[in-house]
């Protein structure tokens, strides 16, 4: 099976927020919760960079390790998913996540904070694939339909790539060689403990 990853080619990203919109719409993510977001570093200065960030589906995921109810699991495609039935909304996964992926329906960490929500790599949750229950809790399951995450599919500049880590790394490498310079595989070292060797 594939080892699914995301890569954002910061050289190409134009901060159009198409990926965040695609994600919001595909999974009907409510207001205030952003599974994918665009962060611009050095905004407005020469040398600014925009990076599209969601859950990176880390190797040896920190969120899964710290969860006090062990509600995370890793699929055969190395996608990090969680069960909203078990989650108690403690907020620990957000402290551990290097990329700020987990989100909560309510702000205060007391009482009913709601169930954590994060990028599912468009592959749902523990419920049966493509079931209504799965859709209501986690959004659509494109992976089960043989499709890749919509954010990357919709990316207007193809800055954001999703798919088997080796394949997308190869595409990125080809680009780097073609244009003569790289933009850094943002987050890869932290998430996967490796970077794209050029």
């Amino acid at each position: 099976m594939a080892r699914m990853k995301f890569i954002c080619d910061a050289e190409r990203c134009i901060e159009c927020n198409g990926c965040t919109t695609a994600c919001k719409n595909e999974h009907e993510v409510p207001w205030g919760v952003n599974r994918r977001r665009l962060v611009t570093v050095n905004d407005g200065k020469p040398g600014e960079r925009s990076v599209s960030m969601a859950c990176m589906h880390c190797t040896d995921a920190p969120c899964a390790a710290v969860c006090p109810v062990n509600c995370f699991y890793t699929t055969g495609d190395a996608v990090v998913l969680h069960s909203k039935d078990l989650c108690i909304g403690c907020g620990y996964c957000f402290y551990a996540c290097p990329f700020g992926a987990p989100q909560y329906p309510r702000v205060g960490n007391f009482g009913s904070r709601g169930k954590m929500d994060k990028c599912t790599y468009c592959s749902g949750g523990p419920e049966a694939d493509l079931s209504v229950a799965e859709y209501e809790k986690y959004g659509s399951n494109r992976l089960a339909e043989g499709k890749l995450p919509l954010c990357a599919e919709m990316c207007s500049t193809k800055a954001l790539l999703a798919g088997d880590g080796e394949v997308i790394a190869q595409i990125y490498k080809t680009r780097v060689i073609t244009r003569g310079y790289g933009s850094g595989a943002w987050g890869w070292k932290t998430a996967y403990r490796e970077t794209v060797a050029i």
Partner: peptide
């Protein structure tokens, strides 16, 4: 619990 519940805000209100 009651007073904190009053303080609690939804993400769609806060963000």
């Amino acid at each position: 619990a009651f007073f904190l519940g009053q303080e609690q805000r939804f993400a769609y209100q806060a963000f």
